[in-house]
Design a protein around this nucleic acid. Structure first.
Lengths: 199, 199
DNA sequence: AGCTATAGTTAGTACTAACTAACAGAAGTC
DNA sequence: GACTTCTGTTAGTTAGTACTAACTATAGCT
Protein backbone atom coordinates (compact mmCIF):
# COMPACT_ATOMS: atom_id res chain seq x y z
CA UNK A 1 0.00 0.00 0.00
CA UNK A 2 1.25 3.44 -0.91
CA UNK A 3 2.08 5.90 1.80
CA UNK A 4 -0.72 8.28 0.88
CA UNK A 5 -3.22 5.48 1.18
CA UNK A 6 -1.91 4.38 4.54
CA UNK A 7 -2.27 7.90 5.86
CA UNK A 8 -5.75 8.47 4.50
CA UNK A 9 -7.01 5.14 5.75
CA UNK A 10 -5.62 5.76 9.19
CA UNK A 11 -7.07 9.25 9.23
CA UNK A 12 -10.57 8.13 8.27
CA UNK A 13 -10.42 5.43 10.87
CA UNK A 14 -9.32 7.63 13.71
CA UNK A 15 -11.55 10.56 12.85
CA UNK A 16 -14.59 8.32 12.57
CA UNK A 17 -13.76 6.87 15.95
CA UNK A 18 -12.86 10.01 17.86
CA UNK A 19 -14.17 12.92 15.85
CA UNK A 20 -12.10 15.42 13.90
CA UNK A 21 -10.85 17.28 16.95
CA UNK A 22 -10.45 14.13 18.98
CA UNK A 23 -8.17 12.40 16.51
CA UNK A 24 -4.61 13.72 16.68
CA UNK A 25 -2.09 13.82 13.89
CA UNK A 26 0.27 11.88 16.11
CA UNK A 27 -2.20 9.02 16.46
CA UNK A 28 -2.94 9.02 12.76
CA UNK A 29 0.77 8.85 11.98
CA UNK A 30 1.27 5.97 14.39
CA UNK A 31 -1.66 4.05 12.98
CA UNK A 32 -0.32 4.60 9.47
CA UNK A 33 3.17 3.58 10.59
CA UNK A 34 4.78 6.71 9.28
CA UNK A 35 6.33 9.68 11.03
CA UNK A 36 4.15 12.64 11.84
CA UNK A 37 6.22 14.83 9.54
CA UNK A 38 5.24 12.70 6.60
CA UNK A 39 1.58 13.59 7.10
CA UNK A 40 2.33 17.25 6.78
CA UNK A 41 4.73 16.82 3.90
CA UNK A 42 2.12 14.93 1.95
CA UNK A 43 -1.00 16.89 2.74
CA UNK A 44 0.01 20.16 4.37
CA UNK A 45 -2.48 20.17 7.20
CA UNK A 46 -4.85 18.01 9.18
CA UNK A 47 -7.86 19.52 7.48
CA UNK A 48 -6.49 18.75 4.05
CA UNK A 49 -5.93 15.15 5.05
CA UNK A 50 -9.60 14.76 5.85
CA UNK A 51 -10.67 16.49 2.67
CA UNK A 52 -8.44 14.26 0.58
CA UNK A 53 -9.68 11.19 2.41
CA UNK A 54 -13.33 12.03 1.81
CA UNK A 55 -12.65 12.84 -1.78
CA UNK A 56 -10.66 9.76 -2.65
CA UNK A 57 -11.88 7.17 -0.23
CA UNK A 58 -15.59 7.28 -0.58
CA UNK A 59 -16.34 4.08 -2.39
CA UNK A 60 -18.74 5.00 -5.10
CA UNK A 61 -20.50 2.98 -7.77
CA UNK A 62 -22.70 3.59 -10.73
CA UNK A 63 -25.96 2.30 -9.37
CA UNK A 64 -27.80 2.56 -12.62
CA UNK A 65 -25.51 0.31 -14.61
CA UNK A 66 -25.23 -2.26 -11.88
CA UNK A 67 -28.98 -2.29 -11.50
CA UNK A 68 -29.62 -2.70 -15.20
CA UNK A 69 -27.32 -5.69 -15.27
CA UNK A 70 -28.96 -7.41 -12.36
CA UNK A 71 -32.62 -6.54 -12.71
CA UNK A 72 -34.94 -9.51 -13.14
CA UNK A 73 -38.32 -7.73 -13.11
CA UNK A 74 -39.37 -9.89 -10.23
CA UNK A 75 -40.23 -7.52 -7.40
CA UNK A 76 -38.95 -9.58 -4.49
CA UNK A 77 -35.62 -10.41 -6.08
CA UNK A 78 -35.02 -6.90 -7.34
CA UNK A 79 -35.87 -5.17 -4.07
CA UNK A 80 -33.69 -7.59 -2.18
CA UNK A 81 -30.87 -6.86 -4.58
CA UNK A 82 -31.27 -3.12 -4.03
CA UNK A 83 -31.42 -3.49 -0.26
CA UNK A 84 -28.35 -5.69 -0.16
CA UNK A 85 -26.39 -3.47 -2.52
CA UNK A 86 -27.24 -0.41 -0.46
CA UNK A 87 -26.37 -2.12 2.78
CA UNK A 88 -23.02 -3.34 1.50
CA UNK A 89 -22.24 0.08 0.11
CA UNK A 90 -22.91 1.67 3.48
CA UNK A 91 -20.76 -0.90 5.18
CA UNK A 92 -17.85 -0.09 2.93
CA UNK A 93 -18.35 3.61 3.56
CA UNK A 94 -19.10 3.23 7.24
CA UNK A 95 -16.37 5.54 8.44
CA UNK A 96 -17.12 8.29 5.98
CA UNK A 97 -20.80 8.08 6.81
CA UNK A 98 -20.01 8.48 10.47
CA UNK A 99 -17.79 11.45 9.78
CA UNK A 100 -20.59 12.96 7.72
CA UNK A 101 -22.95 12.76 10.66
CA UNK A 102 -20.34 14.22 12.98
CA UNK A 103 -18.71 16.93 10.93
CA UNK A 104 -21.43 17.46 8.36
CA UNK A 105 -21.14 20.85 6.76
CA UNK A 106 -17.74 21.62 8.26
CA UNK A 107 -16.01 19.49 5.61
CA UNK A 108 -16.60 20.75 2.13
CA UNK A 109 -18.10 18.28 -0.29
CA UNK A 110 -18.79 15.74 2.42
CA UNK A 111 -22.57 15.88 2.56
CA UNK A 112 -22.84 16.00 -1.21
CA UNK A 113 -20.67 12.92 -1.43
CA UNK A 114 -22.67 10.98 1.13
CA UNK A 115 -26.05 11.99 -0.25
CA UNK A 116 -25.14 10.88 -3.74
CA UNK A 117 -26.10 7.23 -3.36
CA UNK A 118 -29.45 7.75 -1.66
CA UNK A 119 -30.38 10.23 -4.34
CA UNK A 120 -29.43 7.82 -7.10
CA UNK A 121 -31.26 4.98 -5.41
CA UNK A 122 -34.40 7.02 -4.99
CA UNK A 123 -34.57 7.89 -8.68
CA UNK A 124 -33.71 4.37 -9.65
CA UNK A 125 -36.47 2.91 -7.51
CA UNK A 126 -39.04 5.36 -8.78
CA UNK A 127 -38.23 4.49 -12.39
CA UNK A 128 -38.27 0.83 -11.56
CA UNK A 129 -41.68 1.01 -9.90
CA UNK A 130 -43.08 2.92 -12.85
CA UNK A 131 -41.84 0.34 -15.31
CA UNK A 132 -43.12 -2.49 -13.14
CA UNK A 133 -46.46 -0.74 -13.00
CA UNK A 134 -46.60 -0.59 -16.79
CA UNK A 135 -45.96 -4.31 -16.81
CA UNK A 136 -48.78 -4.82 -14.35
CA UNK A 137 -46.48 -6.13 -11.66
CA UNK A 138 -46.76 -3.23 -9.20
CA UNK A 139 -49.89 -1.49 -7.95
CA UNK A 140 -50.55 2.21 -8.41
CA UNK A 141 -48.96 4.11 -5.56
CA UNK A 142 -46.89 7.13 -4.67
CA UNK A 143 -43.57 5.75 -5.73
CA UNK A 144 -41.33 8.42 -4.30
CA UNK A 145 -42.94 7.91 -0.93
CA UNK A 146 -42.48 4.17 -1.17
CA UNK A 147 -38.90 4.54 -2.30
CA UNK A 148 -38.04 6.91 0.54
CA UNK A 149 -39.51 4.69 3.22
CA UNK A 150 -37.77 1.68 1.76
CA UNK A 151 -34.45 3.48 1.85
CA UNK A 152 -35.06 4.90 5.31
CA UNK A 153 -35.67 1.40 6.58
CA UNK A 154 -32.33 0.21 5.24
CA UNK A 155 -30.58 3.31 6.47
CA UNK A 156 -32.05 3.12 9.95
CA UNK A 157 -31.09 -0.51 10.21
CA UNK A 158 -27.52 0.23 9.21
CA UNK A 159 -27.04 3.25 11.47
CA UNK A 160 -28.60 1.64 14.49
CA UNK A 161 -26.56 -1.51 14.20
CA UNK A 162 -23.31 0.17 13.30
CA UNK A 163 -23.21 3.15 15.62
CA UNK A 164 -25.52 2.92 18.61
CA UNK A 165 -27.16 -0.34 19.51
CA UNK A 166 -25.21 -3.09 17.82
CA UNK A 167 -26.91 -6.39 18.60
CA UNK A 168 -28.28 -5.14 21.88
CA UNK A 169 -31.83 -4.41 20.77
CA UNK A 170 -32.64 -7.42 18.66
CA UNK A 171 -30.93 -10.72 18.19
CA UNK A 172 -32.36 -11.19 14.71
CA UNK A 173 -29.56 -11.56 12.17
CA UNK A 174 -28.83 -8.75 9.77
CA UNK A 175 -29.78 -10.74 6.68
CA UNK A 176 -33.10 -11.77 8.13
CA UNK A 177 -33.98 -8.20 8.90
CA UNK A 178 -33.18 -7.18 5.37
CA UNK A 179 -35.22 -9.96 3.76
CA UNK A 180 -38.04 -9.31 6.21
CA UNK A 181 -38.08 -5.63 5.36
CA UNK A 182 -38.08 -6.35 1.66
CA UNK A 183 -41.03 -8.69 2.13
CA UNK A 184 -43.12 -5.94 3.66
CA UNK A 185 -42.72 -3.71 0.65
CA UNK A 186 -43.13 -6.55 -1.82
CA UNK A 187 -46.40 -7.55 -0.19
CA UNK A 188 -47.50 -3.95 -0.25
CA UNK A 189 -46.69 -3.29 -3.88
CA UNK A 190 -47.73 -6.57 -5.49
CA UNK A 191 -51.17 -6.49 -7.19
CA UNK A 192 -53.77 -8.89 -5.78
CA UNK A 193 -54.03 -11.00 -8.90
CA UNK A 194 -50.29 -11.65 -9.05
CA UNK A 195 -50.26 -12.68 -5.40
CA UNK A 196 -52.62 -15.56 -6.06
CA UNK A 197 -50.45 -16.71 -8.94
CA UNK A 198 -47.31 -16.55 -6.85
CA UNK A 199 -48.69 -18.50 -3.96
CA UNK B 1 -34.27 29.04 34.14
CA UNK B 2 -31.88 27.92 36.82
CA UNK B 3 -28.18 28.24 36.28
CA UNK B 4 -27.57 24.50 36.20
CA UNK B 5 -30.13 24.13 33.46
CA UNK B 6 -28.68 26.92 31.40
CA UNK B 7 -25.27 25.28 31.57
CA UNK B 8 -26.48 21.79 30.74
CA UNK B 9 -28.59 23.02 27.84
CA UNK B 10 -25.74 25.01 26.41
CA UNK B 11 -23.39 22.07 26.85
CA UNK B 12 -25.66 19.59 25.07
CA UNK B 13 -26.16 22.06 22.28
CA UNK B 14 -22.52 22.80 21.69
CA UNK B 15 -21.31 19.23 22.11
CA UNK B 16 -23.94 17.94 19.69
CA UNK B 17 -22.86 20.55 17.20
CA UNK B 18 -19.08 20.32 17.53
CA UNK B 19 -18.35 17.06 19.30
CA UNK B 20 -17.06 16.65 22.83
CA UNK B 21 -13.53 17.76 22.06
CA UNK B 22 -14.66 20.44 19.66
CA UNK B 23 -16.91 22.20 22.14
CA UNK B 24 -14.93 24.33 24.60
CA UNK B 25 -15.91 25.22 28.12
CA UNK B 26 -15.50 28.85 27.17
CA UNK B 27 -18.09 28.58 24.42
CA UNK B 28 -20.47 26.66 26.64
CA UNK B 29 -20.18 29.34 29.31
CA UNK B 30 -20.82 32.10 26.81
CA UNK B 31 -23.83 30.32 25.37
CA UNK B 32 -25.19 29.80 28.87
CA UNK B 33 -24.46 33.44 29.74
CA UNK B 34 -22.43 32.57 32.80
CA UNK B 35 -18.76 32.86 33.55
CA UNK B 36 -16.54 29.92 32.80
CA UNK B 37 -15.72 29.56 36.48
CA UNK B 38 -19.34 28.85 37.23
CA UNK B 39 -19.23 25.75 35.07
CA UNK B 40 -16.46 24.30 37.12
CA UNK B 41 -17.93 25.35 40.44
CA UNK B 42 -21.18 23.63 39.57
CA UNK B 43 -19.94 20.47 37.92
CA UNK B 44 -16.22 20.13 38.56
CA UNK B 45 -15.12 19.20 35.06
CA UNK B 46 -16.18 19.21 31.45
CA UNK B 47 -16.73 15.49 31.47
CA UNK B 48 -19.04 15.70 34.45
CA UNK B 49 -21.07 18.38 32.73
CA UNK B 50 -21.77 16.04 29.85
CA UNK B 51 -22.58 13.15 32.15
CA UNK B 52 -24.99 15.28 34.14
CA UNK B 53 -26.56 16.56 30.95
CA UNK B 54 -27.13 13.10 29.56
CA UNK B 55 -28.47 11.91 32.86
CA UNK B 56 -30.89 14.74 33.48
CA UNK B 57 -31.72 16.01 30.06
CA UNK B 58 -32.70 12.92 28.20
CA UNK B 59 -36.43 13.32 27.91
CA UNK B 60 -37.86 9.99 28.78
CA UNK B 61 -41.41 8.70 28.96
CA UNK B 62 -43.16 5.59 30.05
CA UNK B 63 -44.20 4.24 26.70
CA UNK B 64 -46.32 1.49 28.07
CA UNK B 65 -48.70 3.69 30.05
CA UNK B 66 -49.02 6.25 27.29
CA UNK B 67 -49.71 3.50 24.81
CA UNK B 68 -52.34 1.86 26.97
CA UNK B 69 -54.14 5.14 27.26
CA UNK B 70 -54.17 5.83 23.57
CA UNK B 71 -54.57 2.42 22.00
CA UNK B 72 -57.71 2.00 19.88
CA UNK B 73 -57.12 -1.53 18.55
CA UNK B 74 -57.36 -0.18 15.04
CA UNK B 75 -54.08 -1.04 13.37
CA UNK B 76 -53.68 2.07 11.25
CA UNK B 77 -54.43 4.51 14.06
CA UNK B 78 -52.30 2.71 16.59
CA UNK B 79 -49.26 2.35 14.36
CA UNK B 80 -49.51 5.98 13.37
CA UNK B 81 -49.65 6.92 17.02
CA UNK B 82 -46.54 4.88 17.76
CA UNK B 83 -44.67 6.32 14.80
CA UNK B 84 -45.56 9.88 15.72
CA UNK B 85 -44.76 9.39 19.38
CA UNK B 86 -41.39 7.90 18.51
CA UNK B 87 -40.61 10.64 16.04
CA UNK B 88 -41.48 13.40 18.49
CA UNK B 89 -39.46 11.74 21.19
CA UNK B 90 -36.43 11.61 18.95
CA UNK B 91 -36.90 15.24 18.02
CA UNK B 92 -36.88 16.25 21.64
CA UNK B 93 -33.77 14.19 22.25
CA UNK B 94 -32.10 15.15 19.02
CA UNK B 95 -28.95 16.51 20.61
CA UNK B 96 -28.46 13.60 22.96
CA UNK B 97 -29.02 11.16 20.13
CA UNK B 98 -26.36 12.91 18.10
CA UNK B 99 -23.95 12.83 20.99
CA UNK B 100 -24.66 9.13 21.39
CA UNK B 101 -23.66 8.48 17.80
CA UNK B 102 -20.53 10.59 18.19
CA UNK B 103 -19.25 9.68 21.61
CA UNK B 104 -21.00 6.35 22.08
CA UNK B 105 -19.27 4.26 24.65
CA UNK B 106 -16.97 7.03 25.83
CA UNK B 107 -19.75 8.51 27.98
CA UNK B 108 -20.97 6.11 30.61
CA UNK B 109 -24.66 5.39 30.58
CA UNK B 110 -25.21 7.15 27.29
CA UNK B 111 -25.90 4.21 25.02
CA UNK B 112 -28.10 2.55 27.63
CA UNK B 113 -30.08 5.76 27.92
CA UNK B 114 -30.56 6.14 24.20
CA UNK B 115 -31.39 2.49 23.59
CA UNK B 116 -34.08 2.49 26.23
CA UNK B 117 -36.90 3.79 24.06
CA UNK B 118 -36.30 1.55 21.07
CA UNK B 119 -36.16 -1.44 23.38
CA UNK B 120 -39.42 -0.47 25.05
CA UNK B 121 -41.07 0.20 21.72
CA UNK B 122 -40.00 -3.12 20.33
CA UNK B 123 -41.52 -5.06 23.22
CA UNK B 124 -44.62 -2.94 23.14
CA UNK B 125 -45.16 -3.53 19.44
CA UNK B 126 -44.62 -7.27 19.76
CA UNK B 127 -47.20 -7.49 22.54
CA UNK B 128 -49.56 -5.33 20.56
CA UNK B 129 -49.27 -7.47 17.44
CA UNK B 130 -49.84 -10.62 19.46
CA UNK B 131 -52.97 -9.23 21.03
CA UNK B 132 -54.21 -7.94 17.68
CA UNK B 133 -53.58 -11.38 16.27
CA UNK B 134 -55.73 -12.97 18.98
CA UNK B 135 -58.46 -10.57 18.00
CA UNK B 136 -58.10 -11.60 14.39
CA UNK B 137 -56.96 -8.16 13.30
CA UNK B 138 -53.36 -8.97 12.42
CA UNK B 139 -52.04 -11.83 10.33
CA UNK B 140 -49.60 -14.40 11.62
CA UNK B 141 -46.09 -13.11 11.17
CA UNK B 142 -42.72 -12.74 12.83
CA UNK B 143 -43.62 -9.85 15.05
CA UNK B 144 -40.18 -8.97 16.29
CA UNK B 145 -38.99 -8.73 12.73
CA UNK B 146 -41.93 -6.53 11.79
CA UNK B 147 -41.42 -4.35 14.84
CA UNK B 148 -37.73 -3.87 14.16
CA UNK B 149 -38.23 -2.90 10.55
CA UNK B 150 -41.00 -0.52 11.50
CA UNK B 151 -38.75 1.16 14.06
CA UNK B 152 -35.77 1.21 11.71
CA UNK B 153 -37.90 3.00 9.16
CA UNK B 154 -38.79 5.72 11.64
CA UNK B 155 -35.26 5.93 12.90
CA UNK B 156 -33.72 6.16 9.46
CA UNK B 157 -36.15 8.88 8.51
CA UNK B 158 -35.30 10.89 11.58
CA UNK B 159 -31.52 10.53 11.34
CA UNK B 160 -31.38 11.25 7.65
CA UNK B 161 -33.50 14.37 7.89
CA UNK B 162 -31.92 15.69 11.07
CA UNK B 163 -28.26 15.06 10.52
CA UNK B 164 -27.24 14.48 6.94
CA UNK B 165 -29.62 15.22 4.12
CA UNK B 166 -32.27 17.57 5.48
CA UNK B 167 -34.78 18.23 2.72
CA UNK B 168 -32.21 17.71 0.00
CA UNK B 169 -33.17 14.18 -1.00
CA UNK B 170 -36.93 14.33 -1.05
CA UNK B 171 -39.35 17.18 -0.91
CA UNK B 172 -42.09 15.05 0.60
CA UNK B 173 -43.17 16.48 3.95
CA UNK B 174 -42.24 14.71 7.14
CA UNK B 175 -45.81 13.87 8.09
CA UNK B 176 -46.56 12.38 4.71
CA UNK B 177 -43.56 10.13 4.95
CA UNK B 178 -44.65 8.93 8.35
CA UNK B 179 -48.22 8.20 7.33
CA UNK B 180 -46.96 6.56 4.13
CA UNK B 181 -44.62 4.33 6.07
CA UNK B 182 -47.33 3.34 8.48
CA UNK B 183 -49.59 2.43 5.58
CA UNK B 184 -47.06 -0.04 4.25
CA UNK B 185 -47.01 -1.99 7.47
CA UNK B 186 -50.76 -1.74 7.99
CA UNK B 187 -51.36 -3.16 4.54
CA UNK B 188 -48.87 -5.88 5.25
CA UNK B 189 -50.30 -6.95 8.60
CA UNK B 190 -54.02 -6.65 7.95
CA UNK B 191 -55.76 -9.97 7.20
CA UNK B 192 -57.45 -10.27 3.80
CA UNK B 193 -60.97 -10.53 5.14
CA UNK B 194 -60.67 -7.35 7.18
CA UNK B 195 -59.33 -5.49 4.18
CA UNK B 196 -62.52 -6.11 2.24
CA UNK B 197 -64.55 -4.89 5.17
CA UNK B 198 -62.49 -1.77 5.50
CA UNK B 199 -62.66 -0.86 1.86
C1' DA C 1 -26.32 46.54 59.06
C1' DG C 2 -23.93 42.36 58.86
C1' DC C 3 -23.58 37.57 57.38
C1' DT C 4 -23.74 34.08 53.92
C1' DA C 5 -23.91 32.19 49.61
C1' DT C 6 -23.13 32.59 45.07
C1' DA C 7 -21.44 34.66 40.62
C1' DG C 8 -18.01 37.49 38.11
C1' DT C 9 -13.16 38.76 37.07
C1' DT C 10 -8.50 38.38 36.29
C1' DA C 11 -4.27 36.14 36.15
C1' DG C 12 -2.07 32.18 35.80
C1' DT C 13 -0.62 26.99 35.35
C1' DA C 14 0.06 22.74 32.99
C1' DC C 15 -0.57 20.41 29.16
C1' DT C 16 -1.44 19.20 24.52
C1' DA C 17 -1.93 19.66 19.56
C1' DA C 18 -0.86 21.41 15.06
C1' DC C 19 2.75 22.64 12.62
C1' DT C 20 7.90 24.11 11.38
C1' DA C 21 12.94 23.84 10.87
C1' DA C 22 17.03 21.54 10.23
C1' DC C 23 19.68 17.67 9.73
C1' DA C 24 20.68 12.72 8.79
C1' DG C 25 20.07 8.43 6.40
C1' DA C 26 18.37 5.33 2.67
C1' DA C 27 17.05 4.10 -2.01
C1' DG C 28 16.86 4.83 -6.86
C1' DT C 29 18.68 7.19 -11.17
C1' DC C 30 22.07 8.88 -14.29
C1' DG D 1 29.89 7.92 -7.18
C1' DA D 2 27.35 12.12 -7.14
C1' DC D 3 22.63 13.75 -7.25
C1' DT D 4 17.93 13.66 -6.21
C1' DT D 5 14.07 12.44 -3.72
C1' DC D 6 11.90 10.75 0.01
C1' DT D 7 11.43 9.48 5.03
C1' DG D 8 12.75 9.62 9.87
C1' DT D 9 14.22 12.17 13.97
C1' DT D 10 14.63 15.66 17.19
C1' DA D 11 13.78 19.95 19.03
C1' DG D 12 11.06 23.73 19.17
C1' DT D 13 7.25 27.32 18.41
C1' DT D 14 2.67 28.86 18.96
C1' DA D 15 -1.84 28.80 20.31
C1' DG D 16 -5.46 27.10 22.64
C1' DT D 17 -7.85 24.53 26.41
C1' DA D 18 -9.16 22.54 30.84
C1' DC D 19 -8.80 23.91 35.18
C1' DT D 20 -7.18 26.67 39.66
C1' DA D 21 -6.47 30.52 42.88
C1' DA D 22 -7.62 34.60 44.91
C1' DC D 23 -10.15 38.56 45.11
C1' DT D 24 -14.36 41.44 44.29
C1' DA D 25 -19.26 42.33 43.83
C1' DT D 26 -24.03 41.41 44.62
C1' DA D 27 -28.34 39.85 46.44
C1' DG D 28 -31.10 37.68 49.92
C1' DC D 29 -31.95 36.78 54.84
C1' DT D 30 -32.10 37.82 59.64
Amino acid sequence: MKIDDKILNAAIDMIAKKGYKGATTKEIAEKASVSEMTLFRHFGSKKKILEAAVDRYYYSIQMKELFEQKVTWELDKDLLMVAETYHNLMKKNKNVIKIAIQEGSRVKGLLEQVNKHPRQLKELLINYFEEMNRRGLVVDSEYELQAMNFLYMSYGHFISRSFVSGESITSIAEDNIITGGVKVFVENLTPERSKAVMQ
